[in-house]
Design a protein around this nucleic acid. Sequence first.
DNA 1: CGCCGAGTTGAACTGAATCAAGAAACGTGG
DNA 2: CCACGTTTCTTGATTCAGTTCAACTCGGCG
Lengths: 188, 188
Amino acid sequence: MYDKFFSFVSQVVSFDEKIKQVISKNITRVSYPKKTILLKEGEFHQNLYFIEKGILRTFLIKDNEDITSLFFMENDFLVSSFRFVNQPSFENIEVLEDATLLVLNYDDVLKMYKDHPEVNYLGRVMIELNYYRIYHRLVSMLKFSARERYEVLMKSQPELFQRVPLTHIASYLGIKKESLSRIRKSLV
Amino acid sequence: MYDKFFSFVSQVVSFDEKIKQVISKNITRVSYPKKTILLKEGEFHQNLYFIEKGILRTFLIKDNEDITSLFFMENDFLVSSFRFVNQPSFENIEVLEDATLLVLNYDDVLKMYKDHPEVNYLGRVMIELNYYRIYHRLVSMLKFSARERYEVLMKSQPELFQRVPLTHIASYLGIKKESLSRIRKSLV
DNA sequence: CGCCGAGTTGAACTGAATCAAGAAACGTGG
DNA sequence: CCACGTTTCTTGATTCAGTTCAACTCGGCG
């Protein structure tokens, strides 16, 4: 049923059948077409998503400008970090490419964290990995120019450029789409 | 013995005496004078620090330039994120203000994570909070100008300006010290 | 076929960097 | 406790990376 999910997480923890049952009971599989908005600024984020297929992004609005903060794709876990501090989200979540997601209510997840140490173990490791990723993004903002950041992204995630509009990649890199366009031009 | 530590973590989990014993056995309290380098680029980070007193920073070197990525002060937990992926660190750790730290070997921590779910629970929550913090820094880099980032920091962490040199604050904000100086001048 | 969103190009502008020089503050040894 | 050297911070003049605004191209879709 959720084979892809369990085989992915088996890299981190080994779940016995019993715990797989428990987790499975809390999962719903849902498909959304692109452009679906899963969360709006100001709402409380209730869900944790595991992405089986597709691409999503989190984004913020500032002065009519739309800024992509993160992309999520196959095998990523998505929880708005506002959930960690129990505050309404300042960000939005959008489906960029038709997606099938495993949805877990985050309160259910917290309950499993308490009742089933293996689940909490998985949660800790996954967030450590996400932490590592965004920390490196932060560092690259401090350390690299726009062009360098583009080159790093191009090398590390070339498929992203095939799958999402350049506008979103530009704001993700912290630059304007015109600048991205010029950087790309200067590199052919 | 480690009252300050246990009273701080009691906001998150309630540890019984037995587990406090286990943890205490793995703790060493150490004091370092300012300017001590606790980790150098290229080394593997072995420790997790809980800061009882003092200030530390993580920083990177790029072209003879020194870039502060994070500050840590009282009640913060510090682990280099490279530890999460078992890679040598690209960053350095320096003591900025005479510090007393509780030191835990990270392998011991991992062992406690496996053997004692409560410890893993604490670990997960602390990293969630750290994730939230750096995510917001990342977002502020994408969204705000240098001046705005300065104002936000000034409002949220005014004590930082009393305790660490402006050079480090400048690189932490992603700007040069000259620019920080001019921003400060223009705001009096 | 025509519209619409996404991407490109150009010209002018601007926020922050760079380079260079001084001023102030700090701490270490006599 | 002062003196001297070192680090930290400020100021000015100039340059440059990336923005802004506006017009134009292209490809997809109704």
